[in-house]
Write a protein that binds this DNA or RNA. Structure first.
Lengths: 232, 232
DNA sequence: CGCTCAATTGATCGATTTCAAGTCTTGTGG
DNA sequence: CCACAAGACTTGAAATCGATCAATTGAGCG
């Protein structure tokens, strides 16, 4: 077994990762993916629909086809922390125990493929490719979670939002024009802030001529270099 | 391949994880570990000695024999975030790219075993046990990083310190008497706080009769139930 | 067109940081 | 073994950043 370099993800030296946690199983082609498609079942979820809940039996692993999913935890008193957003190609729901440790819900309308965990295990046993993909997926998720912890622990509100925008722009196709798939509340809970603070940070970045807000969910990056400069 | 349940780690439902990230490769016995021992080299590090630095070629994977190691990142302006402490049995340095994404240093004097990554890869290719151990190690690291992100994003200073103490007590042998291996600065940088705030939180927990401070690094838990009650 | 919910904006409040002493530990050399 | 110095930790006061409370604006939808 070879411990893989990131598959389909730039192995660049640290710095703002995709906000989308991983996008391992390439969307096109055949091979192991063909196998996976055989094993999987396509399912549709409307926005805010719960996919699974913390503590549920972790019998399925999911891959995002379209839309965005959030993985999150809710504390006893209602505080919520989103661990990751999963965009197209992202894999989530792979657990180390028999139960999900986090909850997952659709952040936007989305299409997912669900794989029975036991099928995936069988597949991985016979197919080196699949096991490498899972390994790679985990390494990416780990890198993301660690990078996220750095932001949560040591960055200011403005830095958090700036890095979020940069991370969002990276995978987006449309150059520096971004269409956010999630609400301010989701962004706030991802960055460990309140919606008001997120809103003010957006406004601040606009006043500083780093971005332009064309609509609530449409952001254009005007000064990418400056934006990067904001993040320590 | 079977996606393993945690090996040597309770698969209990969420809640305060060990602060020590993983402790996968059991210390005793033979089998795969025997193999690993053949491949590995024992090395000693004094407190604060750097083990590797962000960006270095990630040619080695390490296992802790004794002592505690910190994995951390330093931002441009000096802010530091510790991602994890690794105690005896903990594995660290496994990367998804060719370079380390984090730095690692000895938080206390410690003894490590270093494995050449390429040897480990060869070993894993031939030995299902080893590949499962690595998989399990990654899943534990991921669970830890996500749990850590929740604390960093959504818990108050007192909750952070309380959960730190609980997590520290769990693996410790001496029941409710804890001997901290790391400085206040290390704790602060792990929890995303300042040393002053950590100090005040300790004092607050002592005044509330949850803990007793016998020395700077000696803590006795007086009221574990109450301590847990503090953490949402 | 009006309703409802999301987002913005303003004012105040509070937790944590920052700044500043002061105390306690630890290690070292006499 | 003690005295001293350097560093670690604690404690207090002031400042700051983000949260909370409150009101307004804006967008999506029946």
């Amino acid at each position: 077994m070879t411990i893989p370099n990131a598959v389909g993800v730039a192995a660049a030296t640290s710095q703002p990762l995709d906000i989308f946690e991983n996008r391992i199983l390439s969307v096109s082609g055949s091979g192991y993916l063909g196998d996976l498609r055989v094993a999987g079942r396509t399912r549709h979820f409307l926005r805010d629909r719960e996919i699974y809940s913390e503590g549920d039996a972790a019998d399925y692993v999911f891959k995002v086809e379209t839309g965005v999913v959030r993985s999150y935890t809710v504390l006893r008193d209602g505080r919520r922390q989103i661990d990751a957003f999963h965009g197209p190609g992202g894999v989530f729901g792979l657990e180390h125990g028999t139960a999900y440790r986090l909850s997952a819900a659709a952040a936007s309308d989305c299409v997912l493929i669900s794989y029975r965990r036991c099928n995936l295990e069988k597949l991985a046993a016979h197919n080196e490719q699949v096991s490498l993909q899972l390994f790679s997926s985990l390494l990416c998720s780990l890198a993301h979670a660690q990078e996220h912890a750095i932001s949560l622990g040591r960055r200011s509100a403005i830095e958090k939002v700036a890095i979020f925008i940069i991370g969002y722009a990276k995978p987006a196709t449309g150059g520096n024009d971004i269409l956010l798939a999630m609400s301010r509340k989701d962004i706030a809970d991802y960055l460990g802030l309140t919606i008001e603070t997120v809103s003010r940070a957006f406004a601040h970045l606009e006043h500083g001529a780093f971005i332009e807000l064309r609509g609530t969910r449409q952001v254009s990056i005007v000064d990418m270099v400056g934006l990067r400069g904001l993040c320590a």
